[in-house]
Simulated assay, not measured.
Amino acid sequence: MIERPRRNRVTPFGNIEVNSHRGTLMGNRGDLHNDDGTVCRTWMLRRWISCTLHSPTGRRVTFDTPGCYTPLFFADEVTALAAGHRPCASCRRPAYEAFRAGWQDAFGEKPSAVEMDDILHQARINSAGQKVTFKTLLRDLPNGVFVACEQAVGSAFLVSNGKLFPWSHLGYGEPLSEPFNRAVKVLTPAPVVGILKTGLFPISD
């Protein structure tokens, strides 16, 4: 029997979709399962993390099991960041420490994981569970940030060297050139944008 793809692939909007592409990172927002094992909610914990695909302890990932965390998957690091996930302090310790160093450089303090999670949670979704976005000029954004454009509703674009690369679970399309003074809607949470501006956190590791 052919196994159907699960609903566990995450977009830069933070949405969880069905897609057969595995991705390069795994994530966790808690137990998102319904009683029958299907995904029925978008988050349970404020600790949204991105992890390696392979557990350093060798423990196997459990799918479709209520009571266990729901494994999520990201195409790459910047997709996880845009969705509001930070690096795991356990399986991705170097990336986690780089993230904290960037936070300290950007905001003047080096918070705990819990403190970061609380701030990130307010910056990624509102009380209605909708994604929080803000507008700014394209020229003010660092590489690695995702934006949405009015001319392509529902699509996400990666900012890289002044160009916008359309995102999909499988990869990126041909870049679009946009005026630097154009206002864009930013999908990546504001604290993460600040961290990326410092250049201390690598957008791939």
Rank of each mutant, 00 (worst) to 15 (best):
E3C: 02
P5S: 10
R6L: 15
R6A: 15
R7C: 14
N8M: 08
R9E: 05
P12F: 05
G14M: 02
G14K: 09
N15Q: 02
I16K: 10
V18W: 11
R22K: 14
G23F: 02
M26P: 14
R29N: 09
G30P: 09
H33T: 06
V39S: 12
C40K: 12
R41Q: 06
W43G: 00
M44V: 11
L45G: 00
L45V: 12
R47Y: 11
W48D: 14
C51I: 02
L53H: 03
T62H: 15
T62L: 13
F63T: 11
T65N: 07
L72R: 01
E77S: 15
V78G: 07
T79E: 08
L81I: 02
P87H: 10
C91H: 01
R92E: 13
A95V: 01
F99G: 13
F99T: 08
F99R: 01
A101Q: 06
Q104E: 07
A106Q: 01
K110C: 05
P111K: 07
A123L: 06
A123P: 12
R124T: 04
G129C: 00
K131D: 14
V132W: 05
T133K: 09
T133A: 10
T133G: 04
T133R: 07
R139P: 13
R139F: 07
D140V: 07
L141E: 13
G144D: 11
A152K: 03
V153G: 03
S155C: 04
A156H: 07
F157E: 06
N161G: 12
K163W: 04
F165G: 03
L170K: 15
N181G: 10
R182I: 11
A183M: 09
V186R: 04
T188D: 00
P189N: 02
A190W: 02
P191C: 01
P191W: 05
G194M: 04
L200H: 10
P202C: 12
S204E: 15
